[in-house]
Amino acid sequence: MASASAASLCRFQPFQNQPTKTSGLVTRTSSSLQLVSNGWAKSGFSSLRTSRLQICCSAKHETVQKVVEIVRKQLALPPESEVTPDSKFASLGADSLDTVEIVMGLEEEFGISVEEESSQNISTVQEAADLIEKLVEKKAAA
């Protein structure tokens, strides 16, 4: 409930012309949104604000798409085959060696380093995308 209301507040932020209130709201939400608040503080145009917010919201989708692409390439899947975020690597025909290769490919694509422990827990596209977002965020914060 709390998270839902925070998200909806964040969604309407670009339409409010109250910078002080905006930053106060943003700091209470997740760290990925703090990046956005920095952008707002610097840019004065409301149009820019909206575009930044779109980037923030679609990042998840972009990551998933990128993961899907890499998985397709790694497993040499035909273009007509369907890969959804919930697709399990195993059901796409990947064995454990393929999974290692996929994770290595993702590491290079996103410039991150996946620890061995967590890489063995990845079995779906969505799980991979979630982990990547977490690691990219951590890297940006460091």
Binding site: S96, L97, V100, E101, V103, M104, E116, S119, Q120
Partner: peptide, 12 residues
Amino acid sequence: QKQVLSLYRGFL
């Protein structure tokens, strides 16, 4: 199996 996968990762 974990050792094998970790070696594979190491080689890559």
